[in-house]
Each structure stands twice: as structure tokens, then as C-alpha cells.
Design a protein around this nucleic acid. Structure first.
Lengths: 248, 248
DNA sequence: CGTGGGTTTGAATGATTTCAACGATTGTGG
DNA sequence: CCACAATCGTTGAAATCATTCAAACCCACG
């Protein structure tokens, strides 16, 4: 199914408008991007590391991740994505995918040719700037993750990830900040934080023991004390708020 | 000292031209950027975490790093920069610096107002695209670092950093690939790889013991067997070659 | 009702940090 | 140009944190 001038990309318009104020002509141009809507099942690959890529995708629903495999069979998750994220600009602009994009849940995505995005950025510089700023913000999150895996202990790393997810879920309009369903298994939490699933399990128990969180099912999370959790996590939401507030 | 239309930024023109083919009018516009050349001494801050920033800087000579402090007094280095790098677009576009920029050696930088760069990107979309692609490549390096600290053991992390520096120094036209002066102390190598300086010291000895590298002074490095070192480091230079080859 | 993925737990092992001390090198002011 | 201070590098031993391995458990699903 192919939509030409369509409303599928309307949330993208809203997001980019936050990055850099857009005019009607810009918005129409975004809506006019050619896109193909696809449903992708849980755990399927959107893009595999090493593949040639010529398209980006806009995540309409569900959760996805970017990850890389390393020689010993381990995996490092590089980013978690949710509704409203434009994923994989990096891969599509740089030719060969240096990492995979894989779904965490069933997803709906709008696939957009990279060439069309490039042309859009060129023909509508306000959109180009917005896309650029979006990429800069992506970089801010990457930096936060480097700090997380590089210089924090296991409990802190996990707490930090839980805080980040909480804030981002709220910003994306998915459920409450203090009570949400984890989109990740404990093994995947380990892959995101550079730990083993066994240790993740123990550290989650530690967070429960410290009365910072509680859990019903294994995926359902309740944050009992946001202030103390954020402190334990060394979490400062600044780097995420950038996501919603254009500036400069 | 203020230069108006100047040659100081000529290397920047060359670099951006690699990212996205530029026309003469684009190049002239870059050269016309207002800039102030400053000399900065070793270990001085260009920007401190938390400061309001409204300028980017082009590194003309010397080495610099981006880093962040975490609560226990530890530090995480996020990136190493060298001659020809445009540093701190992120900070300047996102308003408040989420990390510091600090020199590793005496440096010469050209300071450029962020507003001027933003205007440039808007008025000259080819330049805007080039800057965007440069940011995407920055992201590729960040991802590589996440993998490095997240999923590799100490020897591999350090070896990987040594490989990255080797390739980048060569690409920047600074000395040979197999023999160079480390711009980092062992403590700083630790801050870049998420290790302690003590352990870095031991792992460097391990690399020497494995006949992969040798050292004269503590900073002078010789790569004895590039193939084997790269293998040990799980190093694939693809993510760096992107730096010199525009595409898509 | 069985199967499989994900979670939980314990015990042993291993990697990295910490602490503490000493050695080497570099840069600076006298 | 020397002497001293400061920084950086080196080493050992003990402690800590996280991994590994192995097994049991739990639940959702066919």
C-alpha cells in the first residue's frame, strides 16, 4: 500500500516543527514524502548490519532498537525507539548499515526513500535544519549512553535506563511516567547497559529492596519514588527535554 | 584578532566538500564566516559543562576532547578531536553545554558564532547537508564507542582506541599510521575506555607482551602488527572512512 | 499439558578496581 | 642549568564487582 500525499507522516511534521519552526509549505512538503506503510512483527529486522540501505523509517507504533553484534556473540543495544521516532537516517545516509534495526514489539513503520529525504532537506532548508537538529539530539542521547556504560555501576546504569524510558514514554504520550510496561526483557536491558541478564535480574531486585521501584509481572514497572530513583540513577532529564524544545 | 573573509577556514571547506559536493558560492560563504582565532593552552577548557554556549569552534591545530563528569568525581571522555574537526556544534545548537570541551595539548581554534553557522546552513543548503552528514558521522563514532565500553574487555577496548587514533591521525595528515605520539595520558585512555589508569597500564603491557605494539617513551607508540592488532581490537575502519567519502 | 522463552537463584570463577607505594619524566623558577 | 615539584607511569596485594555455569521456576501459548 502506497500513500502519496498522506497523513501518516503528520506526527513527523509535529516533531520537526518542534525542532525548528516550519511554514505551511515545509509541512506540505513533508506530508508529500513518498512512503510505504509496513507492519513488522516482534523481533524482526528492519535493517540488518552490513546491508546496503537506501531508506529511512518513521516509527508509527511499537518499540524498536538499534543494535550491533560483537565477535563473542554478544550484542550491544545502541538506542531504543518508540512512536514518533525517525529511525535510521544514519544508516541510510551513510550507505552501508553499521548497525541493525530490530523490532522489540510488533510495529508499524512508514518507509521513506533516503533520496527523497535528502532532496527535501535541500529544497526546504527549514526542514533540513530541523532534521539536522534532530540528529544533534540523537547524538546527545548517544553521549549519555557512553557515560552510562562507561562510568556507572550496574544499579545506576539500570536505574538510569528506567528513568530515560519513563520520561521518553511520557513525552511520546504513551502511558504515565511512574507506571509503565517495560518494552525490554532483562536480557535486552543487559544488552543496553553492558551487563549480563543474570546481573540485571539481581540489580532490579536491589532497586526493589531500596524501595525505589516495584514490579507486578516481570515487565510491569512502578516507580515508587521518582526523586530518589533519579538521584540513584544520576539522572538529569535535560538531554531529553531538548527533544521537545527547539532553541538557539 | 578578527579575520573576516579569511583562509583560516579553508580546511573546513575541504572537509565539508568531502561530505557533500560544494560549489564555489558555497565555499566562499564558508570562508566568509566570521571567526576569531584563539590560542588555548593544554588542559584549558574551551567550554565547560553547564555553560550557555553560542559558538562552535574549528580546531586548527592540537588535540582536544569532549568529556563529562559524573558524581563520584569520575570522568568519561566522549570524543577525541584533532586538526580539522569542527567541535561543539551540538553544544552550540542545543543551548546549554551537556559536556565540556577541553584541550589535550596547546591548541589553535577558530571560534565561530552558532548563529552564523545556522544562517549558513539555511542560505546554502548544500553546506547545510554537508554539516548534517558530518553530524551523522559523529554519531557513528559515538555508537562505536558505546559498543567499545559496553561489550568489550579491557585489552580490546584499548586496542580499539589505538586503532581509531592511528587511522584518524593518518586521515588528518598527522604522521604515520604505524608510529605516533599518543595525545592521551594513561589516565585519559582510561577515561575514554571506562577503565582505571592502573588497569590501562597493565593492559598496555599485555599488548606489548602479545607483540602487537611497542613503546619507547610512555607516549610514543609503534604498531608492530597492524593486522593482528586490528583483529584483537575487533576494529573495522569503515565507520571512519565515512569521514572522507561523501555518498548516497 | 507440554514446550519454550524469560526470570530467578546459588556457588564458583574471573576481571577490574582500589589502595598504597615507588620510579620516571617533565616543566619551572631560582 | 640545576633542583625541585608536580604529574604521570609502574607494580603488588587485597577487595569488590560482575560473569559464568547450572539448575529450577514461572507463565503464556499452542
Amino acid at each position: 500500500m502506497i500513500f502519496d500525499s498522506n497523513w501518516v507522516l503528520e506526527p513527523l511534521v509535529r516533531k520537526l516543527d518542534l525542532r525548528n519552526r516550519l511554514l505551511t509549505v515545509d509541512k506540505d512538503a513533508i506530508l508529500g514524502l513518498p512512503s510505504v506503510v509496513k507492519s513488522i512483527r516482534r523481533n524482526d529486522f528492519v535493517v540488518k548490519e552490513g546491508e546496503k540501505v537506501s531508506q529511512a523509517c518513521f516509527l508509527m507504533s511499537g518499540f524498536a532498537m538499534r543494535n550491533r553484534l560483537v565477535v563473542n556473540g554478544r550484542r550491544q543495544i545502541l538506542a531504543i525507539h518508540m512512536k514518533g521516532d525517525l529511525v535510521d537516517l544514519q544508516n541510510s545516509f551513510l550507505g552501508v548499515a553499521d548497525h541493525s534495526v530490530q523490532t522489540l514489539t510488533d510495529c508499524e513503520v512508514a518507509v521513506i526513500p533516503a533520496a527523497a529525504i535528502k532532496k527535501l532537506a535541500f529544497d526546504f532548508p527549514r526542514v533540513g535544519l530541523a532534521l539536522w537538529i534532530d540528529t544533534l539530539i540523537d547524538g546527545a542521547i548517544f553521549r549519555e549512553w557512553i557515560v552510562n556504560v562507561g562510568r556507572r555501576d550496574a544499579v545506576t546504569r539500570i536505574a538510569h535506563l528506567l528513568c530515560e524510558l519513563s520520561v521518553r514514554l511520557e513525552l511520546a504520550g504513551l502511558g504515565e511516567a511512574l507506571r509503565y510496561e517495560l518494552p525490554l526483557s532483562q536480557e535486552q536491558i543487559g544488552d543496553a547497559t553492558g551487563l549480563t541478564s543474570v546481573h540485571v535480574n539481581r540489580m532490579l531486585k536491589e532497586l526493589v529492596a531500596e524501595a525505589l521501584i516495584s514490579r507486578n509481572g516481570s515487565r510491569s514497572l512502578v516507580i515508587d519514588d521518582w526523586q530518589r530513583l533519579a538521584k540513584r540513577a544520576e539522572f538529569d532529564r535535560n538531554y531529553l527535554d531538548l527533544r521537545t524544545r527547539a532553541n538557539a
